[in-house]
Structure formats: structure tokens, C-alpha cells
């Protein structure tokens, strides 16, 4: 019985590339990873948004209205719904002149218990040290 911890670090802004969305969809795929593993073994994913990546967490995204696409915001909410830890770098949020009020922080409407954690970079760095592997998006 073992757990492999993956840290997904998202540094790129939304919609300029597919990377942030792929980070989220891959992280959400931890929900079904056990079909490939022995009983008791699992893989977990924590996601950290840093640098330009914090822009992915802006709330009220209109990707569905303008492009007919699921927004990155919706994917973040789905990640919360499946109990994935999400960390957002507080300093980088502030650098963009944003505050927690501008960010998607929960997915209450879906019944998610988890919330987004806006924390100093030092805390994210400490969390990432707990991971077995880091994947940069």
C-alpha cells in the first residue's frame, strides 16, 4: 500500500496555451488512476498556481460564452469537487493588482468541500517539497 504524490505547478496564463487546462485535467484524472494500480496503491495530485499561472484562477471567466469551451475556472471547480488541493501564490496575485475577491475560491454550487488556498510562495514551496515528482505546466 503506497501513495505517490504529484505536484502540478502551473506557471502559464490561461488560454494562451493548452498547458493550464491539461494540468487540471491530468490532476483530475487521479480519480480513476487506481484501475491501473494494485489495491491500496494510489497517486495524488496537488496543484500550485504561481507567476502568470495565477491568472487561471480569475473568477467569472466567459470561455463558454465566447468560445463554447469549458473555462479554466470550471476545471478548477471540478478539481475542488474531487478533493484536489489547490494552492495559489499570494504575492503573484497581488503583483497583478488582484485580491482574493477576484479569484475562484470554492465550488459550493457543486457541493465541493475543498477551497482554494491563497498562500505565500514559501508555503507552496514547502508543500512541493513533500511531493515525489513535480510536473511543470
Amino acid at each position: 500500500m503506497a501513495t505517490t504524490k504529484l505536484g502540478f505547478i502551473v506557471q502559464r496564463p490561461p488560454y494562451k496555451s493548452e498547458n493550464p487546462k491539461l494540468a487540471l485535467t491530468h490532476a483530475i484524472a487521479t480519480q480513476s488512476v487506481e484501475v491501473y494500480l494494485n489495491e491500496g496503491d494510489t497517486v495524488t495530485a496537488d496543484i500550485a498556481f504561481i507567476g502568470d499561472g495565477v491568472l487561471n484562477c480569475k473568477k467569472d471567466q466567459k470561455a463558454m460564452d465566447y468560445y463554447g469551451l469549458t473555462s479554466t475556472e470550471q476545471h478548477i471547480k471540478m478539481a475542488l469537487l474531487v478533493d484536489i488541493n489547490i494552492w495559489v501564490c499570494k504575492e503573484d496575485v497581488e503583483k497583478f493588482g488582484l485580491s482574493e475577491d477576484d479569484l475562484v475560491l470554492d465550488a459550493e454550487e457543486f457541493g465541493a468541500d475543498m477551497t482554494v488556498n491563497v498562500v505565500p510562495y514559501g508555503e507552496i514551496s514547502k508543500k512541493m517539497e513533500e511531493m515525489n515528482h513535480l510536473l511543470f505546466f
Partner: peptide
């Protein structure tokens, strides 16, 4: 599906992720 990749990391000694 994407869970195959995650499962592969379980037994990997090293994971190298090269973004898009």
C-alpha cells in the same frame, strides 16, 4: 486516458514532464 500517465508515475524512479 490521462490516468494511465499518472499510474505510470507511481512506479517511476524519475518523472520528466516536458510541457507544450
Amino acid at each position: 486516458s490521462m490516468d494511465w500517465y499518472l499510474a505510470s508515475t507511481f512506479s517511476a524512479d524519475r518523472v520528466l514532464h516536458i510541457g507544450g
